[in-house]
Structures are given as structure tokens and as C-alpha cells.
């Protein structure tokens, strides 16, 4: 109907399936603009949609965030020091018990640890063979004297311990992050012997990442909706360079504005916080428990 009343739609606009701009579909798969938009969207989703475990009334949530962080770091050190698969499995079981007691869904914990675990698995798979880890053969693939190829017991055990260790450490950090609100993470860090300006800058960094990421998203979306004519790779790169620089310029301007706003509110260059160090019996109990497990592991 639309075509019959005299509106001429150009041929190139009728074709679908091919992205209009080479920078949106270079070679195979998506182009950099679409990839960047997808990356930004998934980032915003991840930050703005916390699973809500931090507000639940579980074991870890009841512990002071500072004690919680210290305890989790001690558990991570324990995981780093353990040498046998069995001992790491025991620790991992403890992590799962802690997650359950903190009302954190084990599947959510696994989902967080999975990307690193899958990456690690593919990375270490060749290490099961004798050419990386020679030892007692478990499965022999080629028995030729010139080039024997087999899966070694040492290789299998080595990657099992490695994967379990990575899994335990990643799960512990994820458990802390899932049970702690972002503001409490930065509050907890203030207790550690890190200069206050770094912690203050860290929480400010997190806040302004959201501002800058919005700038980046807007420029990418604006570019995408305006793209009707194919542009060259060089033009695409030139555009991206200008946008990256725009973000840098914007951030420098914002830093100046933030500084002026801070000065106007009486900031003289010295950081003052309202944190009062007050921990309860259960916080000390938690630190004591994590230290106890660490010391036990050192003697295994």
C-alpha cells in the first residue's frame, strides 16, 4: 500500500540481513559498534541488577563488612596454600555451607565462578599429557618409543588441584561480593592499611564509571541510528578514536567540576570518614574461625 501511493524507497533500504555499515559487521560476526553496545549493556545490567543477597539476613550478612572481608581474604589465603585435592574439596564444601547459611543460591555462585573456570579448564587441558607433566601413565594413547603419548597421573592430579583451587578462590571472592553492598565494600577497604585517598578515589571511580559508560553508550547508539551509508574501516576507527578522546576530555572536565564542588563544600585535601571501628563478638569469632582454618591448612 505504501509503495503504491508514489513513495519511492531506494533499493539499498529494502535489503535486509546485511548490516548497513561495515563497521557494524566486519568480516564474521558483529562489528565493533554492536560489540561495544552489547558489552556496555551487559555491564550496566550486571552493576544495576545485583542479586539482592546483600540485604538477606544470612550468616555472612550479619558479620561486619570489615571482618567479613578479612575472613574471606584469610580463607582465600588458605585456598592458595592447600596442596591436596581432598583438602581443597573440604574447603570448597565449607564455602558452599557458608553460601547456604548466607542464603546465597549455589547456582548463582557457580554462575559467577563459571567463566573463569571454563577459561582455566581449556587453558590447562594439555597439561594432563606427558609432554607437559611426565609421570605414571593412566591412559596411554601412543606407546611408540620415539614419541610416547599418554595422560599422566601427575598431570591429572595437577590440573584437578589447580581447577579446584581457582574454583575455591573465585567462589570465595564472589561470595563476599554477593553478600556485600558496593558501599560496604569500600567502607570495609578503609580498615585495611591502604592510604585513604586510594579508597576515596576507588569509590569515586566506581561512581563515575557509570557516568562515563552512559556517555559511551549514548555515542555508540547515536552513531548506530545515524548509519545509513557504508563507511570504511579507516572512518570507523577515526570515529572510535574521536569518541575515546571525547570520553577522556569529558572525564577531565568532570574531575575539575567535582574538585570545585568538593572545595565549595569545605574540602581541604584531607579525607575524613565517619567510620567507627566497632566489632561485635561474632565478628571476632568469624575472624578467629578463618584464622583457625588457615593455621590448620598450614600444617597439612
Amino acid at each position: 500500500m505504501g509503495l503504491s501511493n508514489g513513495v519511492n524507497i531506494p533499493e539499498w533500504l529494502k535489503t535486509t540481513g546485511v548490516a548497513a555499515c561495515p563497521c557494524c559487521s566486519i568480516g564474521r560476526g558483529k562489528g565493533f559498534i554492536e560489540k561495544n553496545i552489547a558489552a556496555i549493556a551487559s555491564f550496566i545490567k550486571e552493576v544495576l541488577e545485583p542479586e539482592g543477597f546483600a540485604n538477606k539476613n544470612g550468616l555472612l550478612q550479619q558479620i561486619d563488612p570489615r571482618a567479613r572481608l578479612l575472613g574471606i581474604l584469610l580463607f582465600m589465603l588458605t585456598a592458595a596454600l592447600l596442596k591436596s585435592a581432598l583438602s581443597i574439596i573440604l574447603l570448597l564444601s565449607l564455602v558452599i555451607l557458608m553460601a547456604a547459611a548466607s542464603r546465597v543460591n549455589a547456582m548463582i555462585l557457580l554462575k559467577r565462578a563459571l567463566p573463569v573456570l571454563i577459561f582455566t579448564l581449556f587453558l590447562v587441558l594439555p597439561a594432563v599429557f606427558n609432554f607437559i607433566n611426565p609421570g605414571a601413565p593412566v591412559i596411554t594413547i601412543s606407546a611408540r618409543d620415539a614419541f610416547p603419548l599418554y595422560i599422566s597421573k601427575q598431570g591429572l592430579e595437577g590440573i584437578a588441584v589447580f581447577l579446584l583451587r581457582v574454583g575455591a578462590m573465585v567462589s570465595l571472592l564472589s561470595l563476599f561480593m554477593l553478600t556485600t553492598a558496593y558501599s560496604d565494600v569500600f567502607r570495609a577497604l578503609q580498615t585495611f592499611p591502604i592510604p585513604k585517598i586510594f579508597v576515596a578515589a576507588l569509590s569515586m571511580t566506581f561512581r563515575y564509571i557509570m557516568v562515563l559508560i552512559k556517555v559511551a553508550e549514548d555515542s555508540h547508539l547515536a552513531r548506530k541510528v545515524r548509519t545509513i551509508k557504508p563507511s570504511t574501516l579507516k572512518q570507523g576507527r577515526g570515529w572510535l578514536a574521536s569518541r575515546i578522546w571525547f570520553i577522556i576530555e569529558r572525564s577531565m572536565e568532570t574531575a575539575e567540576d567535582v574538585y570545585l564542588a568538593m572545595t565549595a563544600r569545605g574540602f581541604m585535601g584531607e579525607i575524613k570518614t565517619m567510620t567507627i571501628f566497632e566489632m561485635k563478638g561474632r565478628d571476632y569469632g568469624w575472624i578467629g574461625f578463618s584464622l583457625f582454618i588457615l593455621f590448620l591448612s598450614m600444617q597439612l
Binding site: C23, I26, G31, F32, K35, N36, A39, I40, F43, I197, A200, A201, L202, M204, T205, R207, Y208, I209, V211, L212, I213, A216, L233, G236, R237, L240, I244, I247, I248, S251, M252, T254, A255, E256, V258, Y259, M262, T263, F267, M268, G269, I271
Partner: peptide, 23 residues
């Protein structure tokens, strides 16, 4: 005294730059 906002914002743009795919 400018260091905190400047470092924070530059860390933020570093973070954002790391997210970009370069063709």
C-alpha cells in the same frame, strides 16, 4: 587536593577504554 577527583575520573576512563573493542 585535586588528586582524588582527577585520579578517580582517570581510573574511570581507563576502565571504560578497556571495554572498547578496537577494529
Amino acid at each position: 587536593a585535586k588528586q582524588i577527583p582527577l585520579l578517580a575520573l582517570s581510573a574511570a576512563f581507563t576502565f571504560v577504554i578497556m571495554m572498547f573493542n578496537i577494529p
